[in-house]
Amino acid sequence: MTAHQLPAAVVVVVPARNEEESLPDCLAALELAGRALAAAYPTVDLMVTVVLDGCTDSSESVMREHPFARSLEVDFASVGPARRAGIADALARVERPAGQVWVANTDADTVVPRHWLAEQCRLAAQGVQLVLGTVVPDPSGLGIERDRAWHAAHPLEHGHDYIHGANLGFRADGYQRAGGFAALDVHEDVDLVNRLKALGVTWSAVDTIRATTSARTMGRTPGGFAGYLRELPP
């Protein structure tokens, strides 16, 4: 894919570990985003893969209720390897050159906006190879004081310096050149983005595709977003 050319295909990869409660909302939002993509860019193919990573709950049953998405079962109990496996599987199945494929990443406890995929494709067509989106915690689960503290510390604007695996997109050829997601339990997103930037890819940090994520303070990993929220003043 060259500058000013739409991706031929978009693959969405969502790692999930025991997310039966949040997965339905995540998938419903992705289905709406897929419809908006088809309306805006009908020539772009879409594949959604949910990586069920060592799930012992009913996440697999949730997947059967959303046939537009496919599942991949792994047992890493680690987000870096799960994202890596999901992308590798999707790229093998989409049967397009990596330079023509856009990879959109989110999390199973996250709800993306309806225009999430269409906007990333619009940016890709302008020559952007890496898109960094914003994420806000669900205020209904955060509490008034923690919500205020979070927003006070996180101004949301174009050109921000945040990196969230729950709202991250990039061209597949750059991803492959950078070596893919590393086998990290946390901050795998920051690690990858730093390597992509080191390659000199064209990137944009935007607040136009703001996603909402769970405000839980006990996450699936020792650190990460949940741990950060836990440290905010109550």
Rank of each mutant, 00 (worst) to 15 (best):
A166K: 05
A166N: 10
A166M: 09
N167W: 08
N167I: 02
N167G: 05
L168G: 03
L168Q: 10
L168T: 02
G169F: 05
G169I: 07
G169W: 11
G169Y: 07
F170L: 13
F170V: 05
F170I: 00
F170H: 15
F170E: 09
F170K: 04
R171K: 11
R171D: 04
A172W: 03
A172F: 05
A172G: 05
A172D: 02
D173H: 13
G174M: 10
G174Q: 12
Y175I: 00
Y175L: 12
Q176P: 03
R177F: 00
R177W: 00
A178F: 05
A178N: 03
A178M: 12
G179C: 04
G179I: 09
G179Q: 03
G180N: 06
G180C: 07
G180M: 09
F181Q: 03
F181I: 11
A182V: 00
A182Y: 02
L184N: 08
L184F: 08
L184Y: 12
L184S: 10
L184C: 05
D185Y: 06
V186N: 14
V186T: 14
H187S: 14
H187M: 12
E188Y: 01
E188N: 01
E188P: 07
D189V: 07
V190N: 07
V190E: 09
V190K: 11
D191K: 05
D191Y: 08
D191A: 13
L192P: 06
L192E: 11
L192T: 10
V193N: 05
N194W: 11
R195S: 02
R195E: 02
L196F: 08
A198L: 10
A198W: 03
A198F: 00
A198Y: 04
A198N: 10
A198Q: 13
A198P: 00
L199D: 14
L199A: 11
G200W: 07
G200T: 12
G200M: 13
V201S: 07
T202G: 12
T202H: 14
W203N: 13
W203P: 03
W203K: 09
W203Y: 15
S204R: 15
S204H: 15
S204K: 14
S204E: 13
A205N: 06
A205C: 07
A205H: 10
A205V: 07
V206C: 10
V206E: 13
V206D: 13
D207Q: 08
T208H: 04
T208C: 11
I209W: 06
I209E: 00
I209T: 14
I209A: 12
I209D: 06
R210V: 15
R210W: 05
A211S: 15
A211V: 01
T212G: 06
T212H: 02
T213R: 14
T213Y: 00
T213V: 12
T213E: 11
S214M: 06
S214R: 00
S214G: 04
A215E: 00
A215H: 00
A215I: 03
R216M: 09
R216N: 11
R216K: 13
R216G: 10
R216F: 01
R216W: 09
